[in-house]
Design a binder for these strands. Structure first.
Lengths: 159, 159
DNA sequence: CTCTTTAGACAACCAGGTTGACGATTCAAG
DNA sequence: CTTGAATCGTCAACCTGGTTGTCTAAAGAG
């Protein structure tokens, strides 16, 4: 049953989408409306020390303007707070709020539950094997989760 | 080594991106500049009988305007031709050109080569296993490859 | 012959990125 | 202390790839 390479790509994309769509839907049901992976990524980066928009942009490999937009929605939802920096009047210091940490925790739990569901379907051993194989295949390539024309551009146009 | 559910999602996305980015790069090197999965999809649909923009839109679950835009780039690159329909003066009959079929064939070959590379890395048996597992997990969910706010919206908002 | 449906085109808009410019502030160097 | 370069955040304009709404022309049903 030798599938084609294109089918393999579709399966991978399908797996990702099923997982993420389910997670977003579940999060919405639990009261966290329209929470997306990119939000989680940004909050993690902020919690990890990217406490201003420019730095956040650098960490996410995105322009500072794009980072600022993301921060704006996170602030609006109450997931991060923006204060002034006493040491540098240019900066707006970013901080993940309690609510922000909560939604991150719940998001993690939701993903873990989904993974458990998969584990029950194909078995723990095989799921770990699948993950190990994928890790080997993907290698060191860092996954940039947003990427607008994602399906379009290669990561570094060596053209 | 129990990974988290979020990591699993990232691995799947990473696998897809590595595959697709490599394929696009390889296609570009072979002279097919900026050829993307969505183009292949559209051409297949056209070849399969969606011979006008409105029908194409319906098949791809996309507005007829979006379909028309895709057709425009395919026509510009010489992959599809647009003629008049003798039976219906409203329609512009679409046809995949010889060049169009060529790029589809090459694209398929490129993907198959990439799959072979993976096969050499983790073994034929295990790759087939991986595909079978993914197929079981993804289930019947049809993968809509474009999807603009893909990472955002769920397929059918049962909210 | 008239009413409704359909194809395709045009325009306006949206999301989520991009680049460029700019004022305010910081910092390094003379 | 002053001055020039770098950096922060913001604003504005633009790009891509979708969307909806509107319109004309053609087709088809009654």
């Amino acid at each position: 049953m030798s599938r084609s390479g294109a089918d393999l790509a579709l399966l991978l994309l399908g797996g990702f989408r099923v997982l993420v769509d389910d997670a977003i839907m579940e999060l919405a049901e639990r009261g966290y409306e329209d929470f997306r992976p990119v939000h989680d990524f940004a909050m993690r980066a902020i919690a990890a020390g990217a406490d201003n928009a420019s730095e956040l942009g650098r960490r996410l490999s995105v322009s500072k303007q794009a980072a600022a937009k993301t921060v704006a929605v996170l602030e609006e939802r109450g997931y991060v707070a923006r204060g002034t920096d006493p040491l540098d009047a240019r900066r707006k210091r970013l901080q993940v709020t309690a609510l922000g940490f909560e939604v991150m925790r719940v998001g993690e739990a939701v993903f873990d539950e989904l993974r458990d569901k998969w584990k029950r379907k194909i078995g723990a051993k095989q799921l770990e094997r699948l993950e190990a194989d994928l890790a080997a295949l993907v290698g060191a390539a860092t996954v940039r989760i947003e990427t607008p024309g994602w399906i379009a551009h290669s990561l570094d146009e060596t053209t």
